[in-house]
């Protein structure tokens, strides 16, 4: 039997969960996030013989193809800077897109467990982004190799890489948490997320420059505010700053992304306080 003061008490009145309880339960289950993320990670790559390699090679390949094709369209002779530019963008956006897609359906997808066992529902949208972290880190290391090979140098901004990874994680977790709850109530969310990501890809400076080097076409100035308002831009630019040593509008972009994360977090807590204990009634 449980001894001493630590006797857990389940006390529910009404369908609301106070935010304090929500956060406390989440903290108590923090090891569950790690555990389920590990399980997700391992089970995903177990049956593929190349395993983790696939998740690194694919964005790298995608980045290279885009870089080679677009360097001819955007301006000749710029392949040297363009390749690392595109690869950092594609790798980062790949993480955001894959993690968000999985997180946005996480509650419904784990309905069999979630409908029968209680653990904070907020655990669920954190699993996929956490499970994708190892491949993001390895991909970024490879991207840094590409940067070095194409003539970039080692610079102190590299120390910002962990911050960039953390920001990417926080963005997909907060957005995913909101979307997955909406998904419980409307299954259209899955497709809206796919459509949204397709648009976001072009609203993020991945294949074009925000502030192009001389002689290269860059984004028309009128469109820059829209691209900066996109929360993915801050993440991508911060990753670029860390890996290549410079990124246009990085301060503004990161500040806007942080604003998005903060706003999403507030909304998520408000929504989960109301819906956490009843969302699974609908599964």
């Amino acid at each position: 039997m449980t001894s001493g003061a630590a006797t857990p008490i389940l006390d529910l009145s009404g369908e609301r969960t106070p935010v304090r309880v929500l956060l406390r339960d989440l903290w108590r289950h923090r090891d569950l996030v790690r555990m389920l993320a590990e399980q997700d990670y391992r089970s995903r790559y177990r049956s593929a013989s190349l395993g983790l390699l696939w998740s690194i090679v694919l964005p790298l390949l995608q980045g290279l193809v885009i870089a080679v094709v677009f360097s001819r369209l955007i301006g000749g002779g710029q392949t040297g800077t363009y390749v690392p530019y595109v690869i950092t963008g594609v790798t980062t956006f790949g993480f955001l897109s894959q993690s968000l897609t999985a997180a946005a359906t996480s509650i419904v997808d784990s309905g069999a467990i979630a409908g029968r066992l209680y653990f904070p529902r907020l655990v669920l949208p954190t699993i996929a982004p956490s499970a994708n972290l190892p491949s993001l880190v390895v991909s970024l290391l490879l991207a840094e190799v590409v940067v070095l090979v194409t003539g970039g140098g080692v610079h102190p901004q590299l120390l910002l890489a962990p911050v960039a990874v953390a920001l990417a994680w926080a963005l997909v977790v907060s957005a995913g948490a909101l979307l997955t709850m909406l998904h419980v109530y409307s299954r259209d969310v899955r497709y809206l997320v796919q459509a949204g990501l397709l648009i976001l890809f072009y609203a993020t400076p991945i294949i074009y420059f925000l502030d192009a080097p001389a002689g290269v076409r860059s984004l028309p100035a009128g469109l820059v505010p829209f691209v900066l308002a996109n929360p993915a831009t801050g993440v991508v630019q911060l990753v670029r700053l860390a890996l290549t040593g410079s990124a246009a509008h990085v301060g503004t972009a990161v500040a806007i992304t942080c604003g998005w994360v903060a706003a999403l977090t507030v909304v998520v807590l408000a929504v989960y306080a109301r819906k956490e204990r009843v969302a699974c009634d609908r599964l």
Partner: peptide, 15 residues
């Protein structure tokens, strides 16, 4: 088991 919350009243489980 805490999977769902009551619409009215109170559920209390110690332990």
């Amino acid at each position: 088991s805490g999977v769902s919350g009551p619409t009215t009243g109170r559920v209390r489980v110690v332990g």
